[in-house]
Design a protein around this nucleic acid. Structure first.
Length: 110
DNA sequence: AAGGTGACCAAGG
DNA sequence: TCCTTGGCCACCT
């Protein structure tokens, strides 16, 4: 079994709602470990299949997929588009529109 | 025990 | 807007 941190990460990822995305850094922060964005990548890379996590809803802070293999990136994009997430011409997601606002403070209000 | 690696990120040029 | 650089943190030699 992996550390508590991994378990927290998996829990956060599994709570990302359909049609929304979260960044690695965001997941790390919500898991109680801000700054450990790379660990989130590692955790997902080594995530056991049985967990059936919505890993495709986790993308980089630039709005792009960070997956190393092209085929995997295409799959991620297909899964997201299927949920209503739209990509621009450069294959990026508009975070201002689709980023999950879990417990994060609202963008602004006044 | 020390150094390398990776599904990262923000700031500068 | 793209590329580079330094800093991050846990896992694996």
């Amino acid at each position: 079994m992996s550390s508590k941190l991994f378990e927290r990460i998996y829990k956060v990822v599994s709570s990302i709602p359909e049609g929304k995305v979260a960044t690695y850094g965001q997941v790390a922060a919500l898991a109680g470990h801000p700054g450990a964005a790379r660990v989130v990548g590692w955790a997902l890379h080594s995530a056991p299949e049985p967990l059936a996590l919505p890993w495709h809803r986790v993308i980089s802070a630039t709005g792009k997929s960070s997956l190393p293999e092209r085929s995997a990136r295409q799959l991620q994009r297909a899964l997201l588009e299927q949920e209503g997430v739209r990509f621009d011409r450069q294959g990026r997601v508009d975070l201002a529109t689709f980023q999950w606002q879990g417990h994060e403070p609202a963008p602004k209000a006044s």
